[in-house]
């Protein structure tokens, strides 16, 4: 529901990065990690990216989204790993449960709230 504002934040951050660290060619793919806990539509994010990059140096670049599963840590028993998921018939979504899969205690979220650019695929520079 807030894909445009977050796509704008990703774009602004990347443009700032590219001003300080120019790349030898055109950016063709932007690799993004998206946490499973976030309520973001991948389709809407890609569409927002397409529209917001129009007229910028990133026009035509593709947003490649990698879903980051929720990983948790249990302060009680030390478990660290993927969260348990609840899948109920008719829910049509696997819900990550913030409870230790091993001992049932409350857990901390290690990963799964991320929204970060983690890499770029850069094409050949023009004229080379």
């Amino acid at each position: 529901m807030h894909e445009y504002s977050l796509a704008q934040a990703l774009l602004a951050g990347l443009q700032d990065h590219l001003r300080r660290n120019p790349v030898p060619g055109r950016v063709v793919k932007v690799h993004v990690r998206k946490g499973e806990l976030l309520s973001l539509s991948e389709w809407a994010l890609r569409e927002a990216w397409r529209l917001l990059t129009e007229g910028t140096e990133l026009a035509g670049s593709e947003l490649v989204l990698e879903n980051v599963p929720v990983r948790v840590r249990c302060p009680a028993c030390g478990y660290a790993g993927e969260a348990r998921r609840l899948t109920e018939e008719g829910w049509h979504i696997a819900v990550p449960i913030l409870s230790c899969p091993r001992c049932g205690s409350p857990v901390e979220v290690l990963e799964g709230r991320d929204l970060a650019i983690v890499g770029l695929t850069v094409g050949e520079a023009p004229g080379t």
Binding site: L6, A9, L10, G13, D114, L115, A116, V118, G119, L120
Partner: peptide
């Protein structure tokens, strides 16, 4: 590759 900053 490498971190470019997490917007959240």
């Amino acid at each position: 590759m490498g971190p470019f900053g997490d917007v959240l």
